[in-house]
Computed example of a mutant assay.
Amino acid sequence: MIDESAAAKEDIRLWREEIRSLPRGGNLVIALVCVALGVWGVFDSLSDADGDRFWGTLPIIVPGVFAGWCILQMTWRRLDSLIPLLLRFVSACLIAPLFVAVPIGIVQAVAVAFPGVRDEIARSQAANNDFHYWWDEGIGSQLGLVPFAGYMLGGCIALGVSLVIVFPVISLRAPAVVASGSHLEKVPVGQRDYTAAFVFVGLGATVLGIALWNFGRGGSIAEFPDGVARLLEDVSYGYFFWEDTVWLFGVVFVVIGVALMAAGCLRVMFARSSAAADTDESATRQN
């Protein structure tokens, strides 16, 4: 019981320190800049009934900027174990967006409490055929939607940065950290480092490839040869379509990523089989 109590207290201490470290030092500056940009976007959206300006999206985007920055820091920090990485991964995805989304939501709620702000929304909506891109669903809906959407997108951005950048970089810089506590530890020491890199770099390439694939033209992989030929022909005429280019890069990243992950996973499977065989042989000798 004493050991369990001490472990629980240690967990609480680690989480408390992790959460306190999020809005500290340079992170605090980044958070304040993100909040300022988000507030600017809130006030700009009041008169942007057409939704033509980019600034109105800032209240939803900037929580993800801060969350992505928080997890990105792990790529250059010194890591001696997996615990700090896991703590930051969870806190960046679930907690960091709140430090930006909540203040923006509070400022937005306070702003619309003033009649002049509500009148500006009504005037912009009336001048745009009674439609407002940002506030058409009503003030109440917008007050809940903006912080919630910012928080959710922030968590997704932190997750994406983790999978595409952070874990692959750490698997190259400190492979023992990402392999800690996993089946990768069963791989022989001489092969463990690049096996971990295969798995995590392959995962990052696959996730990035899927994103590019969907943001691009989104054709099937069977169309890849024709797509390459079409791109080369377009380039020969001095132009190209970005949708085709992004899609082609997406296909390449997915193929390379899956191949790397397969190579890493096969090594892990062989290592597990070898370890199991050695265990059975040892048990047989003892009997």
Rank of each mutant, 00 (worst) to 15 (best):
R285S: 07
R267E: 05
A259S: 05
C265A: 09
A262F: 11
F270M: 14
V251M: 13
V255E: 02
R285P: 01
S282M: 12
R267P: 03
G257A: 06
L248E: 08
V254G: 09
L266G: 03
G238A: 06
V255M: 08
Y237C: 05
L260I: 00
I256G: 07
L248H: 01
A276T: 04
G264M: 04
A275P: 06
R285H: 05
F253C: 10
V255S: 01
T279D: 15
D280F: 12
G250R: 08
T284Y: 15
A271P: 02
F241C: 03
R285Y: 09
G257E: 08
M261V: 07
M269Q: 14
A259R: 06
M269Y: 09
D280R: 12
Y237G: 10
W242K: 02
I256P: 02
A275I: 00
V246F: 08
G238D: 07
W247C: 07
D234W: 02
F241E: 13
G250Q: 06
S282R: 07
T284A: 15
F270N: 11
V258M: 10
M269F: 11
L260C: 09
V255I: 09
V246W: 08
T245W: 04
S274K: 06
F253V: 04
R272Q: 13
L260D: 11
D278W: 07
T279E: 15
T284Q: 11
D244Q: 15
T279C: 09
Y237E: 15
M261P: 03
Y237L: 11
W247A: 11
V251L: 08
F253S: 06
V252T: 08
E243N: 13
A262R: 07
R272L: 12
V252A: 15
T284F: 13
M261S: 11
E233W: 12
L248C: 03
S273H: 11
R267D: 03
G238Q: 02
A263E: 14
M261K: 06
A277T: 03
V235Y: 04
L232A: 09
T284R: 15
D234H: 13
S274F: 07
R267W: 00
T245E: 10
G257I: 03
F270W: 10
D244R: 15
C265R: 12
L266A: 06
Y237P: 08
A277S: 07
T245I: 04
D278F: 05
C265P: 00
V251A: 12
V246A: 14
V255A: 13
A276C: 02
V252F: 14
A263M: 15
R285D: 04
V254S: 01
G250A: 05
S282W: 01
V254Q: 08
G238K: 02
T245C: 08
A276L: 11
V254C: 11
V246N: 04
G238L: 01
V235W: 14
G238C: 06
G264L: 00
R267Y: 00
E281R: 13
V255R: 02
S273G: 15
W242S: 14
S282L: 13
D278S: 12
S274W: 09
